[in-house]
Design a protein around this nucleic acid. Structure first.
Length: 866
RNA sequence: GCGGAAGUGGCGGAACUGGCAGACGCACAGGACUUAGGAUCCUGUGGCCGCAAGGCCGUGUGGGUUCGACUCCCACCUUCCGCACCA
């Protein structure tokens, strides 16, 4: 790289007007002599107390005043605040503080997702009541949050394990029950033998429990309560268009996949020889039905045993079936081979009348569609592989619109694309899209099928055989059957004294005082439901409760919610992209139907922050690479921790924990402290002069330079908050400003105190969302009696930010050959003239012809020569 | 396999609309101050060649568009994440 060149007459690499070299020593000495050390612990303690006494971050609904609701995801109170939390809350806090300075009424609350399994595990291991354990953890984590000075309105704190909160879970459940959105059915459930409870489908990952990733989930039949998420499947999908601007694309994609809408048709195939028995399949490709050469059943399809009846080799078939059931493919065994066997029976293709053999196949999912599919090897890759293996016939019924015709013998893989129908009876010659509609219609009018759209999304099973959760408010009466607990009897409280063994069914079943109840309808004996709710119920609506956390007559006052909602900015980890966020959207839609809210979506903007890693991997207990937030605060102060979280990477990217990096941030804050401290006493009595709009001629060259850098920094930091959401570059910009101020020391020379003060004031304001305690302290030291909470975000004056003079790069054929200076606004011709005269440039032009010139204002000149 | 994100110095990262690649920080080196410095302040720091002036190379790879490409287009490689026999 070329050596930096200063202007003629200036020392190389030094800013025009910077202090002469000899001055550095003097400044350093003076700084050392007079400046107190940056003491983050003292400063942070002081301001946290002041904020708390003042209720500085309490916010109430003020109709007519613009609001901003910024929210971080509800934490589980594990006891330690780890780096992920710290990063999450630091981002949210920076945004909250920035928006306050922008004049918004900011709602920024925090609470605790305090039901859940770990409390029960702790109860077993340490013989401590889940409530005690949980509350101790909450106290600990809250202390860390306070130590970090996050600007929460603590009056709105909620804890989901308190009856004041969970009674509204029960209330919502009853509302859903009334509307048929909560129902009970016996169903095959995912059972985790370690958790000793049911898991939602969403909680099964690769066939294993989401908490125990080496424990395979078992199938079990149980009576379960479900919430009918599927009745909102279309709304959940359609309303995603409202989120396209504010949510990360990948989250929307994940949700779309999860909902898994597929449009197709249900078709009934009659069992050959038994006209009253038929098998239904679901297909999205009814246009290929003339190419179906078999019908495939899931190994656990309910009809399978019936098919074997009366066959001589029935026992052998049943053995094969149960063998195949053991080989139902789990996602982890995706590469495993397809297997199946012929059942000995046939169905009749309702379109062609042709007989088709029925096979059982291990890759057919019993829980999706109808658990049976038609097998079209020519046009479906899975069927193709299956038929090749078992030598079933392959028949081409779709030919590509353009390109070579295909033939069954030459196929190396299935041809799944749409095309034109061949060998398809009366449909031959139609295009796939046309045929899909027509054939489904015909199937319906001929009585063996119907167009249908199905979803991958299933109803949400919420029953958990656990103690530490919300009791499901249902009674079972010997006479009246299933009876909901009347609203006025809520909450159904968790009994305090329960033996938690971790074995068998719900611990509540062992508490007679809880189980035995009176039927509210007939007054007879009733048994209470002993399952509790999935904790995702708690977190599906908690952010509404923040709007009205103390309400004891309703989950919230709709007017308050109408003021604060929707959430303007929600911030959390990507791990909640599906479960929590779909359930929350579902709850919102139910609430809208209950007329509690009038918005369609609860969250306008969602941000997924990156993980915090150490040594390139996520911090985790098992890896032993966890750094606790409290340790950072103890060693460096929380402002340093915050600054590092924001500086080390843009917020959406993973962040590598670096001790040296954090020391760099600590140095930076100390450097800011010394700078302001050095001038604070002198400037505290000075009224800052707002130079905006001032006559530039009245400013000294140094004043202009100071103001220019300051206003350029304001612009950069403001854009970072408003548009880019890249706080790393905000801090970098502020560092540049600080460097410039140091370089121009002594500031008291050639610059009026009022101007210097103005610059330092603005610097401190820019810093305040990022390192709030230090900023408050410096603000005070600059002589301001009022706290920063009352201060507006600094304004930006483009006139002051403008450069007077630009260095213009002169390129010859795209290569940098020289540099010239041009005053702002200098005409193109003049810039070009200077470029052509530049002594560095001239030799490159000798004997050449300039074919083209490009002049980019304030940036460069490119001369194309030949 | 499908979908998404990303590949830039020794490291974290910057470059906003196509216009000086490497801002800012870390690390390292030199200097100042100092009894001392792992504090502070100042300076330097992509690679190669060169005493220097300067030159050449350089943003995963290969092409393309353009006066000009980290940025746009095409093909490919690698990494991470999500989904995955969903009929």
């Amino acid at each position: 790289m070329e050596a930096p060149r200063g202007r003629p007459g200036n020392p190389v690499g030094r800013l025009p007007g910077a202090a002469p070299r000899g001055a550095c020593r003097a400044i350093a000495n003076e700084v050392k002599r007079t400046v107190a050390e940056y003491d983050p612990q003292a400063i942070e303690r002081k301001w946290q107390e002041i904020w708390e006494r003042a209720g500085a971050f309490d916010a109430d609904a003020e109709p007519g005043r613009p609001k901003y609701y910024v929210l971080e995801m509800l934490p589980y109170p594990s006891g330690t605040l780890h780096m992920g939390h710290m990063r999450n809350y630091t981002i949210g806090d920076a945004v909250a503080r920035y928006k306050r300075m922008r004049g918004f009424n900011v709602l920024h609350p925090l609470g605790w997702d305090s039901f859940g399994l770990p409390a029960e595990n702790a109860a077993m291991q340490h013989n401590i009541h889940p409530r005690e354990w949980t509350n101790a953890n909450i106290a600990q984590m809250k202390a860390v949050c306070r130590r970090f000075g996050f600007s929460y309105d603590w009056r709105r704190e909620i804890s989901t394990c308190e009856p004041e909160y969970y009674r509204w879970n029960q209330w919502f459940f009853l509302k859903m029950f009334e509307r048929g959105l909560a129902y009970r059915k016996r169903s095959r459930v995912n059972w985790c033998p370690k958790c000793q409870t049911v898991l939602a489908n969403e909680q099964v990952v690769d066939g294993c429990c989401w908490r125990h990733d080496t424990t395979p989930v078992e199938a079990k039949d149980l009576e379960q309560w479900f919430l009918r998420t599927t009745s909102y499947a279309d709304a959940l999908l359609d309303d995603m268009k409202l989120l396209e601007d504010g949510w990360p694309e990948r989250v929307l994609i994940m949700q779309r996949n999860w909902i898994g809408k597929s449009a197709g048709a249900r078709v009934r195939f009659r069992l050959a020889g038994e006209p009253n028995v038929s098998i239904e399949v679901f297909t999205t490709r009814i246009d290929t039905i003339y190419g179906a050469t078999a019908l495939l059943l899931a190994p656990d399809h309910s009809l399978l045993p019936k098919l074997f009846e009366g066959q001589p080799n029935r026992a052998a078939l049943e053995a094969q079936a149960s063998d195949l059931r053991r080989h139902i493919l789990r996602p982890a065994e995706m590469a495993a081979e397809k297997r199946g066997f012929f059942t000995g029976r046939y169905v009749e293709n309702p379109f062609s009348g042709e007989p088709m053999p029925i096979w059982a196949a291990n890759f057919v999912l019993s829980e999706y569609g109808t658990g049976a599919v038609m097998c079209v090897p020519a046009h479906d890759q899975r069927d193709f592989e299956f038929c090749r293996k078992y030598e079933l016939p392959i028949r081409v019924v779709i030919q590509p619109e353009n390109g070579d015709q295909i033939s069954a013998d030459a196929l190396e893989s299935a041809a799944a694309d749409y095309g034109r129908l061949v060998n398809s009876g009366p449909y031959t010659g139609l295009g796939s899209e046309e045929a899909l509609v027509k054939m489904a219609n015909d199937a319906e009018s001929r009585g063996f099928g119907i167009a249908e759209t199905i979803f991958r999304l299933r109803d949400w099973g919420i029953s958990r055989q656990r103690y530490w959760g919300t009791p499901i408010p249902i009674l079972y009466c010997e006479k009246c059957g299933v009876v909901p607990v009347p609203e006025n009897e809520l909450p159904v409280r968790l009994p305090a004294n329960v033996a938690i063994t971790g074995q068998g069914s719900s611990p509540l079943a062992g508490v007679p005082e809880f189980v035995n109840a009176t039927c509210p309808r007939c007054g007879g004996r009733a048994r209470r439901e002993t399952d509790t709710m999935d904790t995702f119920v708690d977190s599906s609506w908690y952010f509404y409760r923040y709007a009205d956390a103390q309400n004891d007559r309703a989950p919230f006052d709709p007017a308050k919610v109408a003021y604060w909602f929707p959430i303007d900015q929600y911030i959390g980890g990507i791990e909640h992209a599906i479960l929590h966020l779909i359930y929350s959207r579902f709850f919102c839609k139910v609430m809208r139907d209950l007329k509690l809210v009038d918005h369609a979506e609860p969250v306008s903007r969602l941000f997924s922050q990156g993980m915090v890693q150490k040594g390139g991997v996520a911090m985790s207990k098992s890896r032993g690479n966890v750094v606790a937030a409290m340790d950072v605060a103890d060693r460096y102060g929380c402002d340093t921790g915050r600054a590092y979280m924001l500086f080390a990477a843009p917020p959406e990217k993973d962040l590598e924990w670096s001790e040296q990096g954090i020391e760099g941030c600590s140095r930076f804050l100390a450097r800011v402290f010394r700078l302001v401290e050095r001038h604070g006493e002198r400037l505290a009595v000075v009224q800052a002069e707002n130079a905006a709009g001032a006559d530039p001629a009245s400013l000294s060259e140094k004043e202009r330079a100071l103001l220019r850098k300051t206003h350029q920094t304001i612009k950069r930091v403001t854009d970072d908050f408003e548009i880019r959401w890249h706080f790393n570059t905000s801090i970098a910009a502020i560092m540049e400003l600080v460097n410039e101020l140091y370089a121009r020391e002594p500031l008291e020379e050639d610059a009026r105190p009022a101007i210097v003060k103005d610059c330092l004031d603005r610097l401190v304001c820019l810093l305040s969302p990022l390192a709030p305690h230090l900023a408050e302290e410096l603000w005070e030291r600059l002589g301001h009696g009022d706290g920063l909470a009352a201060v507006r975000w600094p304004g930006f004056d483009p006139e002051l930010a403008r450069e007077d003079e630009y260095e213009i790069v002169v390129q010859i054929n795209g290569r940098v050959r020289g540099r010239v200076f041009a005053e702002a606004g200098l005409g193109e011709q003049e810039v070009l003239r200077r470029a052509l005269e530049d002594p560095k440039v001239v030799p490159f032009l000798e004997g050449k012809t300039i074919v083209k010139t490009v002049v980019v204002p304030n940036r460069l000149v490119n001369l194309v020569v030949r």
